[in-house]
Simulated scan of single mutants.
Amino acid sequence: MLETATAADAIVAPARQNGLTAAVTAEDVMTAAAAGDPRAREVLTEEARLPALTVAAVITVGDPALVILGGGVGRRLGDYVPVVQEQLSLIPPFEPPPLEVSLLGDRGILYGGIAAEVESAREIALARRFAND
């Protein structure tokens, strides 16, 4: 549900409802905001609140030094990250860590899964080896 609520469509739909009828992609909304369209800026600010609240919940528990945003929105909309960072800074009572865009893009989940399985296989292999010694 979080992925759906923070995906590119979650930026386009409210932009179109807010009168940006030419907005077909989230990039269109970003371009309009960069060009000074107050409706586009309002949509981005509003839609950045959910990712900011999500990051706030995570950093409250984990206290990371850095948060990396992945997926299509993070990868394609690097200018969206400062809007999320701005919204995050409005949530008290802590100093938020910096946000960065994942260099892995949509492949982050795949690579994370592979890394977890390799680690699991390594542990099993070591347990078997030492069990036979």
Rank of each mutant, 00 (worst) to 15 (best):
Q87R: 14
Q85G: 00
E119A: 13
R16C: 09
G70T: 03
S102R: 13
I109P: 09
V67T: 04
A115F: 04
G36P: 02
A48F: 05
G113Y: 03
P98V: 08
F130L: 10
V43G: 03
T54C: 10
S89A: 15
A8P: 00
A56R: 09
P38V: 14
P97M: 10
A65E: 15
I91V: 14
Q85S: 09
A23S: 12
E27I: 00
P51A: 13
T45C: 10
F94C: 11
D37P: 06
L126E: 12
L104D: 07
T31E: 15
T6G: 09
A34N: 12
A33R: 00
P51G: 10
L20T: 07
I91A: 07
Q85P: 00
L2Q: 13
E46C: 02
I68N: 00
L99G: 07
T54M: 10
A57Q: 15
I124Y: 02
Q17G: 14
A7S: 06
E100N: 07
E46A: 10
A23Y: 11
E3V: 02
T25S: 12
F94K: 15
A33Q: 04
V84R: 08
R107H: 13
D63T: 05
T4L: 09
R39D: 13
G108Q: 14
A32R: 08
I68M: 02
L103N: 13
S89R: 15
L110I: 15
V29Q: 05
V12H: 03
A127N: 08
L77F: 01
A56S: 14
I11W: 02
A15Q: 10
T60Y: 13
G112S: 05
I11E: 01
V29H: 03
D79T: 03
E47D: 05
T31K: 14
P38F: 12
A26I: 01
L88N: 10
I11A: 02
P97H: 10
L69K: 06
A8K: 09
P82R: 03
V101Y: 06
A125C: 03
P64L: 05
D9Y: 09
T45M: 08
L77W: 01
A13N: 13
R75E: 12
A8N: 09
P38H: 13
D133Q: 13
R16D: 11
A48G: 02
R129M: 04
A23R: 09
N18P: 06
I91P: 05
L90G: 10
A23H: 09
M1W: 13
I114S: 00
L104C: 06
Y111T: 08
G71E: 11
R107Y: 14
